[in-house]
Amino acid sequence: MQFLAPMTVDEALGALSEREDGLRVLAGGTDVMIQRMTGQLPRSESLLYIGGITDLSGVHLSDGTICIGALTTHHDLRCNPVIGTDLPSFAEAAATVGGWQTQAVGTIGGNLCNASPAADLAPPLLAADATLVVSGEDGPQRIPANRFFLGRRRTALPVGQILLKIEVPVPPAATWESYLKVGRRSAMEVALVGLAARFSLAGGLVETARLAVCSVAPVPLRLAHAEAALVGSTLDQGAVAIAAQRSMEEIDPIDDQRATASYRRMLVGRLLGKAARLAREGLEIQ
């Protein structure tokens, strides 16, 4: 195997284009290295370490858009003041990834491109209607978040390209968002269920509702029918009950070593109820 460590995006893309047999992109390594160790990825596979490309990390706010570099670590997302103020669900999700060591090296780009059904950053991304900017054949190309995840460990990122950044519009005023995750323990957990919720109010009523979940289907997904039940409501019990019921119909959870499908189904409805409760407090809905 070879280990390549380009210092620029162009070098990285050059390396990718030269090799037909593929090159595994390595960022923080918190997934790739484990998959190699456990034999899910061949150990003979060469690695393209992009962690040395400095201009792919960091958070920038310009023209009403928040740009998150693909190599921004979970630790930096957790601590960034722009994220903390405008996209708290991203900060909350980053704070639940593994433990402090994982957060110190793991990146948002890695979390998304690895496309685990349990990716913690995926629900906030989907709920925020974010856009993924990839290197592209002839310059950067944009992929909407809801078209990015194609299946377990499969994304719309074209072969030979890399993810550059994530763009998220600054949410409107009177918006509340959060990421709620259930694991068996308080840290070091793969989500049994993760739910990102975002509610924007207009005239005291919910104008937009965004609900996205992970660990309940082969891909992270939006709960469109549940969202629809909440639009125009005050997140009152009646509307939330309908949304919770719909949410459980929109998902396709499985039994595995971590939890049963039936528990995951229960959790989605309850997390939705919890999000509504917290949002009513946060938005001071009477």
């Binding site: 068996r184 308080s186 070091m188 793969v190 070593q257």
Partner: peptide, 16 residues
């Protein structure tokens, strides 16, 4: 065994 690594085994954590 279905849980085969310490990652999935679930040892108690200081925070809990």
């Amino acid at each position: 065994y279905t849980r085969r690594t310490l990652e999935s085994y679930g040892l108690p954590l200081a925070v809990d």
